Amino acid sequence: MTDALVIGGGPAGLMAAEALLAGGRAVTLVEAKPSIGRKFLMAGKSGLNLTKMQAFGPFLASYGEGLHPTMRACLKAFGPDEVKAWTEALGQTTFAGSTGRLFPHAMKASPLLRAWLARLDALGLERHTRWRWVDWESNIHHFDTPEGTRVLTPRVTVFALGGASWARLGSDGHWAPRFAANGIEVAPFQPSNVGLQVDWSEHMTGQFGQPIKSVEWHAGDLTSRGEAILSKQGLEGGGIYTLAPALRGHGATLTVDLLPDLSVEEVQKRLPETAKKGMAKLLRNTLKLPPVKIALWNEFTQGTPIPFDQLAARLKALPIHHSGLRPMDEAISTAGGVSFDALDDTLMLKDRPGTFCAGEMLDWDAPTGGYLLTACFATGLLAGRHAAGYDRP
């Protein structure tokens, strides 16, 4: 018999373990990979963006209109201010960039993870790596381990198995069919925060690697002023990632405003009264577009004459023909997972008393910019706190 079991060693699992330990439970944490927090460490390689320091209303709005009330409660209990305080309590000073994004001064995830694990170990956490969860019967859990099959029977369990992106780091979604087979509703995984596949013509080769700045992207009801990188595969970067919810659908359209700081009327005023100038000169000399924007224009107009009176409007809404989102394993995160209909407001499975779920394995979505990590922390904390207070009948 095990007291409290946490399955998954990412941010949500570690936060659940911390809450359980704080609640006086003896905690065993198991992780399928050879080390803890692999995706967390990868996320910090280019600067660990922990959260975004902004008013709670706009912060919450970034998770989309369909955010479940339980997720709202999690984020209200552990939002940007709490993330900052928690990080600094681990001895990692922080700073907010000009956009409000919060980073540790060390910028990397490794110092924070080491300090976190040291605190958890001091509180008595027992942890095992290379333990892959296989299945369960009631509250009896089966694992494949280097020593063979192991079985644990915990009083309470928190699952924090991740989504279905970055399989090499542990988030492979292999748990989902087992949950579904046990009658738990799981929404299909979909890529999020991922690049767009574009089948470029040969003339775009010279632009690969170039940033596309000072543009505005539109897809469905979503708008993004972020920049993107023109890559061999298509378009990458924050400007595109935030549009993933609108671009998942079949035939989803994407347009780019090449002159977002000017209205259609202002663009029209800058154009000559007639089309005597060649298009190349208009774009380069009159409108001062950089080469990468001109390349985009040429790629998606393909030399088709644009009526002069429609030119300004097309510059403000150039259609980007694409082949959909890049594969799920290239995504930073995924939508889909355990449906909130299968959970109560403590994140406990309704049909599995004493079993809780947290992190990216839940069916929610968020853009990059600290929102993903904050939600993982917040759901792990809520699940861990309620698991700590749960007594199996």
Results as ranks from 00 to 15, higher is better:
2 T>K: 05
5 L>E: 03
11 P>S: 11
16 A>R: 01
18 E>A: 12
20 L>P: 02
21 L>G: 01
34 P>F: 05
35 S>A: 14
40 F>L: 14
42 M>K: 05
47 G>N: 11
47 G>H: 10
51 T>I: 00
55 A>D: 11
63 Y>G: 00
69 P>C: 01
70 T>L: 05
74 C>P: 03
75 L>K: 00
75 L>S: 00
78 F>G: 00
80 P>Y: 09
81 D>Y: 13
87 T>Q: 01
89 A>V: 03
94 T>F: 05
97 G>E: 09
99 T>K: 11
103 F>R: 01
104 P>K: 11
105 H>M: 13
109 A>Y: 04
113 L>Q: 01
113 L>N: 00
115 A>N: 07
118 A>E: 12
122 A>D: 15
127 R>C: 10
128 H>T: 13
129 T>K: 10
134 V>M: 09
136 W>K: 10
137 E>N: 13
138 S>H: 09
139 N>R: 05
142 H>Y: 13
146 P>G: 11
147 E>M: 12
148 G>V: 15
150 R>C: 06
154 P>N: 04
157 T>F: 04
159 F>D: 01
159 F>S: 02
167 A>L: 07
168 R>F: 04
173 G>I: 00
177 P>F: 02
178 R>K: 08
184 I>F: 14
190 Q>F: 09
190 Q>S: 15
190 Q>P: 02
192 S>R: 08
192 S>W: 03
196 L>C: 06
196 L>M: 01
197 Q>Y: 06
197 Q>W: 03
198 V>D: 10
200 W>D: 10
204 M>W: 00
205 T>R: 15
206 G>I: 15
207 Q>M: 07
207 Q>L: 14
208 F>H: 09
211 P>I: 13
211 P>D: 13
213 K>Y: 00
213 K>E: 15
214 S>F: 07
216 E>W: 08
217 W>D: 00
220 G>L: 06
221 D>T: 12
224 S>A: 03
226 G>K: 06
231 S>K: 02
232 K>R: 06
233 Q>S: 14
245 P>M: 12
246 A>T: 01
248 R>A: 10
249 G>S: 12
251 G>T: 07
254 L>W: 04
254 L>I: 09
255 T>M: 03
260 P>K: 04
265 E>I: 05
265 E>A: 07
267 V>Y: 11
268 Q>L: 08
269 K>C: 08
270 R>K: 15
272 P>V: 04
273 E>D: 15
274 T>Q: 06
278 G>L: 04
279 M>V: 15
281 K>T: 08
282 L>T: 07
283 L>R: 08
285 N>V: 08
287 L>E: 13
288 K>M: 14
293 K>L: 12
298 N>V: 13
299 E>Q: 07
304 T>W: 09
305 P>D: 05
306 I>L: 09
308 F>W: 15
312 A>C: 14
312 A>D: 07
313 A>Q: 09
313 A>I: 02
318 L>C: 09
326 R>L: 15
327 P>C: 13
335 A>E: 05
336 G>L: 14
339 S>Q: 10
344 D>R: 12
351 D>H: 10
352 R>S: 14
354 G>C: 08
355 T>A: 06
356 F>I: 04
367 P>G: 01
375 A>L: 01
378 A>Q: 01
381 L>D: 12
381 L>M: 14
382 L>V: 15
382 L>G: 01
385 R>A: 10
387 A>Y: 00
390 Y>C: 02
391 D>A: 11
